[in-house]
C-alpha cells in the first residue's frame, strides 16, 4: 500500500467529505441564525423589561404590561388547537383510511391549498364573513352554555371577539396539522394493520389499535407546529380582534385579551424610544413561550419512545 504511513484513519471518499461538510455547514447556520435572533431579542429587549411607566401604557412594570398579552396569545392558540386538532385528525384519517383514492387525492390538494392562503386574507375573511356568521352561534352558546366562563357574554354584536379570532386561527392551522397527520397515518405499517384486522378488528378498531398509537408522536408534533403558527400569527388576529390588556376567559364579550404578536404589529409604527424596546421584550417573551411549547412537545413524544415502534 502506497499510503501506508497515514493508515490510522480509514480513507474518506471525496463525495462523503463534501456532503458531510455541507450538512455540518447547514447545521451550524441554523444555530447561528437562532443565536442571532436570540441575541437581538435580548440586547434590544432587556432595556424594555426595565422600562418605566412612561413606555408601558401606564402599567407599573413590564410584567404587568406583557402578562395579559401573553395570556391572550396562549388562550387564542389553545382555542385554535382545541378546535383544529380533532377536525384535522378526522380529515387526515378520512383521507388516509376511508376515502376512495380519487376523493382522497382531491381532498389532499384542497387542504394543501388552504395552507397557501395568505394570513391577511384569513383576517379579512374573519371580519367580513366569519364574524357576522358566527353571531347566532355565539348567542346560542351564551344562552345555553353561559354558565361556563368562556361563554358568559354578552355577545358582541359585530362578532369580532376572541371566539372568532380563535376559529380563524383554527382554520389557519388546520392544513399543516392535517397534512402532517395524513403523512403519519399513511406510514402505519401495513403489517400492523393486517395484524389487527386478522384478529377481527373492525376498521375503526384497527385504527385505534395501530394507526393512532403509531401516529401518536406525529399528532403531537403536528399539533405543536400548528400551535407554533397560532402563537406567532399576527395579521389575522390583529384584524379580527381589538385586544386590550386584560385577563378574561370570556370569549364572547367586547373586551378581549390581545395577543403579543398582534400588539407588536399594532403598536410598533407609533412606538419610539424605550417603547420600542418594550415591544421587542414582549417578542422575547413570545419566543420563550414558543420555545417552551416545543420543548414540552418533545418531552411528551420522547416519554414512551420505547413503545413507539421506531425500534
Amino acid at each position: 500500500m502506497a499510503t501506508r504511513t497515514r493508515s490510522e484513519h480509514p480513507p474518506v471518499r471525496r463525495g462523503d467529505r463534501i456532503f458531510s461538510a455541507t450538512a455540518l455547514g447547514a447545521g451550524i447556520l441554523i444555530l447561528l441564525i437562532l443565536a442571532g435572533v436570540a441575541i437581538f431579542l435580548l440586547v434590544q429587549g432587556v432595556p424594555g423589561i426595565t422600562a418605566g411607566r412612561g413606555s408601558l401604557s401606564g402599567r407599573d412594570s413590564f410584567w404587568a404590561y406583557v402578562g395579559p398579552f401573553a395570556f391572550g396569545t396562549v388562550f387564542a392558540s389553545i382555542i385554535a388547537l382545541v378546535v383544529a386538532v380533532p377536525i384535522a385528525v378526522g380529515i387526515a384519517l378520512f383521507i388516509s383510511h376511508y376515502a376512495p383514492r380519487r376523493v382522497a387525492l382531491a381532498l389532499g390538494y384542497i387542504v394543501d391549498l388552504l395552507a397557501a392562503v395568505p394570513s391577511v386574507v384569513f383576517g379579512v375573511w374573519g371580519i367580513t364573513v366569519l364574524s357576522p356568521a358566527l353571531v347566532p352561534i355565539m348567542q346560542w352558546l351564551e344562552d345555553n352554555a353561559g354558565f361556563l366562563p368562556f361563554f358568559e357574554g354578552p355577545t358582541l354584536t359585530s362578532g369580532r371577539n376572541m371566539f372568532t379570532a380563535g376559529l380563524v386561527l383554527a382554520v389557519m392551522i388546520l392544513p399543516i396539522i392535517t397534512a402532517i397527520c395524513r403523512e403519519v397515518f399513511l406510514q402505519t405499517p401495513r403489517l400492523h394493520e393486517e395484524a389487527a384486522l386478522a384478529l377481527g378488528a373492525t376498521r375503526w378498531e384497527m385504527i385505534r389499535m395501530t394507526v393512532f398509537p403509531y401516529g401518536r408522536s406525529g399528532i403531537v408534533s403536528a399539533s405543536m407546529l400548528g400551535l407554533g403558527r397560532a402563537l406567532g400569527e399576527t395579521l389575522a388576529v390583529a384584524l379580527v380582534l381589538s385586544g386590550s390588556a386584560i385577563y378574561t376567559f370570556n370569549t364572547l364579550a367586547a373586551e378581549n385579551s390581545g395577543t403579543i404578536a398582534a400588539n407588536i404589529a399594532l403598536q410598533f409604527p407609533e412606538a419610539s424610544g424605550t417603547a420600542v424596546n418594550v415591544l421587542i421584550a414582549t417578542g422575547l417573551i413570545l419566543f420563550v413561550i414558543t420555545f417552551a411549547v416545543n420543548y414540552t412537545a418533545r418531552k411528551i413524544v420522547d416519554r414512551r419512545s420505547e413503545f413507539s415502534g421506531a425500534n
Binding site: H192, E194, A195, R216, S308, G309
Partner: peptide
C-alpha cells in the same frame, strides 16, 4: 386466526 410471514406484534403494546 392468522399468523403472518414476518412477526408483527403491536409495537405500541406490551
Amino acid at each position: 386466526g392468522m399468523v403472518f410471514q414476518r412477526p408483527n406484534p403491536f409495537p405500541t403494546m406490551s
